[in-house]
């Protein structure tokens, strides 16, 4: 087994030092990203966006900030265990992913969050190759398992 490759799957690549230009660009992009992502997705600026994998529901809205699916506390009505008045973020993510036929992306083991990227622009981080690019198009043969259950 290629261990080096496994690491890449589990931990985000190290944050690299940005040039001065990139730093300025990061601030500008963060501004525009916020304009777009905060009202639409209640973005939490984790800098490591996985919106495209979670049916376009920001997983970081979860009080436990889980990145790999719901905890065992989702209430019978699909609400959060911590804030009973709110819907469970992962419950919403699952429903939306299913509607968009993107449940195959929920099978991914999402990387451990790199806190050095917190409050940076995810768009720039993709551009500077610090994080993986989002997945917009999914191959039809990717869609397995859950779809089979539908």
């Amino acid at each position: 087994m290629n261990k080096e490759k496994d690491f890449d799957e589990l931990v985000t690549l190290k944050k690299r030092d940005l040039s001065r230009g990139e730093k300025i660009l990061s601030k500008i992009m963060l501004f525009f990203e916020d304009l777009f992502k905060v009202p639409l997705f209640k973005c939490h600026h984790c800098g490591e966006c996985i919106l495209s994998h979670t049916g376009f529901v920001c997983s970081q809205r979860c009080p436990k900030r889980l990145r790999n699916g719901p905890c065992g506390g989702t209430r019978a009505n699909g609400h959060c265990e911590v804030y009973p008045e709110r819907k469970c973020v992962w419950y919403m993510a699952f429903q939306r992913a299913r509607r968009l036929r993107r449940t195959s992306l929920l099978h991914r083991i999402e990387k451990i969050h790199n806190w050095e990227l917190e409050k940076t622009s995810a768009w720039l981080n993709v551009w500077t190759k610090q994080i993986e690019p989002p997945t917009f198009i999914i191959r039809s043969d990717d869609d397995h398992d859950i779809k089979k259950q539908d």
């Binding site: 209430r75 699909g78 929920l106 259950q149």
Partner: peptide, 20 residues
Amino acid sequence: ANPFAPPLEFRVLRLAKKIK
């Protein structure tokens, strides 16, 4: 694993993820 919390399908998926 919590087989009782919704959504049921995701509970199976999460088990698959833990195995992976």
